Simulated assay, not measured.
Amino acid sequence: MRIDVVTLFPDFMRQCAAVGVVGRAQQRELLQVETWNPRDFATDNYRTVDGRTCGGGPGMVMLIEPLRAALKAVREAAPEPVHVIYLSPQGARLTQDRVVSLAKMPRIALLCGRYEGVDERLLAHEVDEELSIGDYVLSGGELGAAVVIDAVGRLQDGALNDAQSAQQDSFSDGLLDCPHYTKPVHDALGDVPAVLLSGDHAAIRRWRLKQSLGRTWLRRPDLLARRNLDAESAVLLEEFRRDYLRHHEAAVADRGN
Results as ranks from 00 to 15, higher is better:
Met1His: 05
Gly190Tyr: 09
Asp191Ile: 09
Leu71Thr: 09
Arg75Phe: 06
Leu67His: 05
Ala73Leu: 01
Glu238Met: 08
Lys72Phe: 12
Gln96Tyr: 10
Gly23Asn: 05
Ala234Ser: 15
Ala25Val: 07
Asp243Asn: 14
Leu67Glu: 05
Ala163Tyr: 02
Pro79Cys: 01
Arg227Gln: 13
Asp150Phe: 08
Leu30Arg: 09
Val82Phe: 11
Leu213Pro: 00
Tyr136Cys: 10
Glu29Tyr: 11
Asp11Trp: 03
Asp135Asn: 11
Arg2Ser: 12
Asp162Val: 12
Val137Tyr: 09
Gly214Val: 03
Leu155Ser: 01
Tyr86Gln: 08
His125Asn: 14
Leu229Asn: 07
Gln26Pro: 03
Pro38Met: 08
Gly153Phe: 13
Glu80Gly: 03
Thr43Leu: 15
Glu120Thr: 09
Val148Cys: 03
Leu131Trp: 12
Ala151His: 04
Val152Ala: 04
Gly214Lys: 05
Ile64Pro: 04
Leu218Val: 12
Phe171Gly: 05
Leu237His: 05
Asp50Cys: 11
Thr43Ala: 12
Asn161Met: 06
Gln168Met: 08
Val6Tyr: 01
Asp254Asn: 08
Met105Pro: 03
Ile133Pro: 00
Ser139Ala: 15
Pro184Ser: 13
Val99Thr: 10
Ala163Asn: 01
Gly23Glu: 07
Arg114Val: 09
Cys112Arg: 06
His186Trp: 13
Asp119His: 12
Asp191Cys: 06
Leu213Ala: 11
Arg226Gln: 15
Leu229His: 10
Pro79Asp: 14
Asp230Ile: 07
Arg114Tyr: 11
Tyr244Arg: 14
His125Leu: 15
Gly174Lys: 08
Gly91Lys: 08
Arg208Lys: 13
Ala109Gln: 00
Leu236Val: 07
Pro79Lys: 08
Leu63Arg: 15
Met105Lys: 15
Thr7Asn: 03
Cys16Asp: 02
Ala69Cys: 08
Leu111Ser: 00
Glu29Gly: 03
Cys54Ile: 15
Cys54Tyr: 15
Asp191Phe: 09
Leu94Gly: 05
Asn45Met: 12
Arg220Thr: 07
Tyr46Gln: 11
Val235Met: 11
Thr95Lys: 04
Leu196Asn: 04
Arg226Tyr: 09
Ala159His: 00
Leu196Lys: 09
Ala188His: 15
Ala109Tyr: 00
Leu224Gln: 08
Thr95Ile: 05
Asp222His: 10
Gly59Ser: 01
Glu34Pro: 03
Lys183Trp: 09
Gly91Trp: 04
Val192His: 04
Ser212Arg: 14
Arg107Leu: 07
Asn257Val: 07
